[in-house]
């Protein structure tokens, strides 16, 4: 039996997608250990913190026992995706990084769709919406450094989005809300397939054997998705689960981390 470590140091954004880092992170969350960010990352966070933690209820609190809470969970993920693609497409060097017009169409489309998803969920949630999430600009810069890095992280984001919606659908109590989630998740799956295909020459990666197993796509419970988001160190606004989901969790088939 291995001895659980009581601390974990995250040195670089690259560490954050790694499963070994995530495993340590999850283990530490479970035993109340300490997680330290290396000084460069930590310093980068402090300057971006526009939403200081307030005692008793600051940040983004999710009540996963209600449809509203599940929509807020989706809203949080869509905010991250929209921010990622907005950074990519809005960058002054977008056309330099992506000289192929087909790739620019792909990423611009996805940026547009994720922004629509974010704004739609925000409107649907109204006064129940969690706040806009503040991002760690150092992490954003690292995730969008160059073409290969962007496409790789886009793949991880899209597969994670598919897994998150597939895992959360059963929590929705109202058929209208489930339908809306269904309208969005298949678009995320289209994105995932398109990004995977843009990085692929085999013709199989769009729904590769790493992501579709026994004919079934990835799925993850909210806790596993949020742990991955936390480990990414992308969000400086604290995200917490105020109330757990009411419907029983099922076994995860985690979204793979792109390499």
């Amino acid at each position: 039996m291995s001895e659980p470590r009581s601390s974990l140091v995250i040195d670089s954004p690259e560490d954050l997608w790694r499963s070994s880092t995530r495993r340590s992170f999850l283990r530490l969350l479970g035993v109340g250990g300490t997680i330290a960010l290396a000084p460069t990352l930590f310093a980068a966070c402090s300057g971006d913190d526009n939403n200081p933690v307030q005692p008793n209820g600051g940040g983004a609190q999710l009540d996963l026992s209600t449809d509203i809470g599940i929509f807020n969970y989706a809203y949080a993920l869509e905010q991250l995706e929209a921010a990622f693609y907005s950074t990519v497409v809005g960058a002054a060097n977008f056309a330099t990084l992506f000289t192929d017009t087909n790739e620019r169409e792909l990423l611009t489309d996805i940026r547009n769709h994720e922004v629509v998803h974010r704004e739609f969920l925000k409107a649907a949630l109204g006064s129940s919406a969690i706040p806009a999430l503040a991002l760690n600009t150092t992490t954003v810069a690292a995730l969008t450094a160059d073409r290969a890095t962007i496409l790789k992280n886009a793949q991880s984001f899209e597969d994670l989005g598919v897994a998150a919606y597939n895992g959360a659908g059963k929590q929705l109590k109202d058929a209208r809300n489930l339908l809306v989630a269904g309208k969005i998740v298949s678009v995320e799956a289209r994105h995932a397939a398109a990004i995977r295909d843009a990085r692929d020459t085999t013709g199989r990666a769009f729904a590769g054997d790493d992501v579709v197993i026994g004919g079934l796509d990835v799925k993850m419970e909210p806790a596993a998705v949020l742990a991955r988001v936390t480990a990414l160190n992308l969000v400086t606004t604290p995200i917490s689960v105020a109330k757990q989901q009411t419907d029983a969790a099922t076994a995860d088939q985690p979204a793979p981390v792109a390499s």
């Binding site: 998740v185 298949s186 678009v187 397939a193 079934l216 990835v218 799925k219």
Partner: peptide
């Protein structure tokens, strides 16, 4: 839902 998203990938 997990079959549904596979069809969308296709």
């Amino acid at each position: 839902l997990r079959i549904h998203s596979v069809e969308a990938r296709h």
